[in-house]
Design a binder for these strands. Sequence first.
DNA 1: AAGGTAATGTTAATAGTATTCACATCGATC
DNA 2: GATCGATGTGAATACTATTAACATTACCTT
Lengths: 197, 197
Amino acid sequence: MTPRAGYHHGDLRNALEQAALELVAERGPQGFSLAEASRRAGVSAAAPFRHFANREALLAALAMRSYEEQRVRFARAAGGAADPIEQLARFASAYVGFAVEQQALFDVTFGAGLVKREHPGLEEAGQRVLDVLRAPAEQLRAEPAAALELIHTIAATAHGFAAFLREGVLTDRARAEVSAAAAARVLAHQPDQRLPS
Amino acid sequence: MTPRAGYHHGDLRNALEQAALELVAERGPQGFSLAEASRRAGVSAAAPFRHFANREALLAALAMRSYEEQRVRFARAAGGAADPIEQLARFASAYVGFAVEQQALFDVTFGAGLVKREHPGLEEAGQRVLDVLRAPAEQLRAEPAAALELIHTIAATAHGFAAFLREGVLTDRARAEVSAAAAARVLAHQPDQRLPS
DNA sequence: AAGGTAATGTTAATAGTATTCACATCGATC
DNA sequence: GATCGATGTGAATACTATTAACATTACCTT
């Protein structure tokens, strides 16, 4: 965290990402500007372009970071259980927790208007986050298509709860975590073929 | 669509909203600027401020429109069925359909970085959209808290599928609609108290 | 150790944006 | 028909992103 020694910064790329995250945390998903981030890093407004093609690219780098962080958190959360259903439930709960505890990362990834299609690595990194669900889903559904659908359904539900919390539709984090986990359990239990009555 | 008659536009507020929507449709959630919208409406860059407090306020107005549109669409969709479970399923499917058919409205509402907390009417309008689920949820869950949880869970799942489609996590609209509806049915069927085995 | 090169910063310029203020025009009302 | 409030205009301010030409430095090669 040496702000500046001489002419060169030494770790500008990181300092800019850090500053950007803080700006998003302070001012919301739009409140980030390269100029202000540069100011906080103590460099000129042109310096960022040595490290990022443009403003979007910085956001994309943060989104990538976000996906990495998600991957490890969700893997750790799911790893805490042996039962596949419980693994899915813990993923859902952890997903909601991430949106709250890492608001800035979550906002950058989903609320800053980043167009992921234009940043090839991003879409793939996003998909990789869902790999955590692969093993438990395949234990619960023999048919590959059914396993994939379960993955998407659990993830969509978790994402919905997380987004609603960030949007203000929901306000109680703990309740959202519990509901997301409960939904995951219900969805995991119930293969479509065996709908009651 | 009278672009301009004399000094006064006649319907500038609407023209600006329309132009803004088109910009979002063409250039993504960030691609909208007051200046460009003004240009398309054929007025000066200062004109919008007679109708909107600032740029955010225009977005907020569009989000309000979006919620209205959602309300009628979802009510119509759910109204097509008598069975409460089927009403929930149709809501979920319609939610996904809205995100695809009205991309610009959906993007403005959820992907443009609008901070809804700062626009009082918006949060309420968002909640009102979920009122469509009230009657079926209460038929399925006697306990008010359980009914509310069901509402939130169905809506979150639908929103997740919709968001994943817009994000590129999913690409097949029809499949997403079917999965969302299927998830809704499973979630509706299964009161937490009666988890199998 | 010397020197060349690529990486990393700086300054200055351009172009676009939001927002405000003083002024212009117009529609409706007394 | 004069007046007033609503709606537009133009010019000014203050940011922002981005680029180009130039400066400094780290590092690699000899």
